[in-house]
Amino acid sequence: MLNTNPNIADPDGFYAALIAAHDGLSEEQSAALNARLILILANHVGDPEVLRAALAAARPAN
């Protein structure tokens, strides 16, 4: 099951590292970094049901 409850120990530290990973990148390079990151994390998750739920959760609300 997709965990939508807080699960990151240091949210501010993670967020700062995420934004810092984009430092100095063009918009296109940033989009590519995001794509790679999603694929890496998706592989780590593995479970197809969880991935389906995550894709649905990320869709725009309306």
């Binding site: 807080p6 990151i8 501010d12 967020y15 995420l18 934004i19 918009e27 940033s30 959760a57």
Partner: peptide, 27 residues
């Protein structure tokens, strides 16, 4: 400070409305 940072910020706000996990990221 950048477009991508703005996109992530608004993604966090968007998700925080629906999912508790994103709320600790709102700063």
């Amino acid at each position: 400070k950048s477009k991508i940072s703005h996109i992530f910020r608004n993604a966090v706000l968007d998700l925080a409305e629906r999912y508790p996990f994103a709320r600790p990221l709102v700063n």
